[in-house]
Nucleic acid binder design. Structure first.
Lengths: 163, 163
DNA sequence: TATTGTTATACTCTATAACTATA
DNA sequence: TATAGTTATAGAGTATAACAATA
C-alpha cells in the first residue's frame, strides 16, 4: 500500500471566514434536520410553528415572506402540519382569498418538543464554546442577520417603525 | 385592502444560535456561489483548486475525503476543471488504479481570481462587523470546526500527530 | 477479495410558471 | 386587472448502488 497524505482542508480554506461560516451553518442545519426528522418532524416545521404560534392572524403569504420561502413551497408544508393536527387553516371572512393559519393546542405542544430538540443539537454543536463565547457568536450573527434582512429585527421594532 | 402584520421572524428563532448560524451560513454560501458562477466557476471549484494547489500528489479519493464529498460526485467536477485546463489527471504509475491530480499554471491563476471574488463577497457580507469582530467570529468558527472534524486542523498538526 | 475511479439511478430541495377563486 | 392560494413541472444538488480496471 502506497502512502498518501492524510485528508485535510487546505489552510487557505481554514482562513476563510466565508468558507467556515458556510460549512458550519450547513452542517448544523443538517444535524438539526436529522434529529427533527427522527422525531417525526419535517425541516420547516420549526420555523412555521414558531411563526404561527408567536403571532396571531397569519396568512400564508406573510408566513412565506417571513420565513423567506416561496408561497408554493409553503402549501405542502402546511398540508403536512394540518394532517397531523398541528395547525388549522381557516378562510378569512374579510377576504375570502386568504387563509388564516393558527397553531392548535397540540401544535404548541409539539413546538415545545421541537424547541428541546433544537436546543440539544445546538448545545452539542457548540460544545467547545463556553457560555461567553456562545453569546459572542450569537451577538455577531444577529448583527450580520439584521444588517442584511429587516425581517431579523424584532417585531416590536418593525411595528414601531411602521407607526 | 386589509392590513396584515409586516413579515418578520419570530423572536424565538432570533434567539436560536442554531437557526441564525444555519441561515447565515446558507445565505453566504449562496452569495459566494452566485458570484462564482457569474465569473464562470462552479460551486466546488474553490475547494478543489485550493486543495490541489496547496498540496502535491493528491488522488481523487483524498480530495473527496478532504472536502467531505462523495468520490462519485468529484468525478464530474474534475471533468469540468480538466476540460477548462485548470487541472490535470495522470495515472499514478505506482498504483495504476489511482489518478494523481495537479493544478495547471492557469488553474493556479484562476484560483487567485476565485480568492478575490470570495474575499469580496465575504467583506460585503460581514460589512456590519469591524475587524476585531470578524476575527472573533473567525476564531469561534475555527474552534467549532476543529472540534467536530479533524480535517479542519492544520496540515502540520495532522502530520505531526501521524508521526 | 478489496480498492480506485466511474457511471447510472433516484430522491430531495428549490425555482418557475400556469391555474382558480376571489377582489 | 391584481392577488392568495394551489398545482405541476423542471432543474440543481446529493446519496446510493452497481460496474470495470487494478491491486
Amino acid at each position: 500500500m502506497i502512502q498518501t497524505p492524510p485528508p485535510c482542508i487546505p489552510s487557505e480554506l481554514l482562513e476563510s471566514t466565508a468558507f467556515l461560516l458556510g460549512r458550519m451553518g450547513i452542517k448544523l442545519k443538517k444535524r438539526v434536520m436529522e434529529d427533527l426528522e427522527a422525531a417525526g418532524f419535517s425541516p420547516w416545521d420549526f420555523g412555521v410553528l414558531a411563526l404561527v404560534a408567536d403571532r396571531a392572524c397569519e396568512t400564508q403569504a406573510t408566513i412565506a415572506d417571513g420565513l423567506g420561502l416561496d408561497r408554493s413551497q409553503l402549501v405542502g408544508m402546511l398540508d403536512g402540519l394540518e394532517e397531523r393536527g398541528l395547525i388549522e387553516r381557516k378562510r378569512d371572512p374579510r377576504d375570502r382569498r386568504r387563509h388564516t393559519v393558527t397553531a392548535t393546542g397540540d401544535g404548541k405542544r409539539q413546538l415545545s418538543r421541537i424547541r428541546t430538540i433544537v436546543k440539544r443539537v445546538e448545545d452539542e454543536f457548540l460544545a467547545p464554546l463556553d457560555a461567553e463565547s456562545r453569546e459572542q457568536l450569537h451577538a455577531l450573527l444577529v448583527q450580520v442577520a439584521q444588517y442584511h434582512d429587516p425581517r431579523f429585527s424584532p417585531a416590536e421594532q418593525a411595528l414601531a417603525a411602521a407607526v
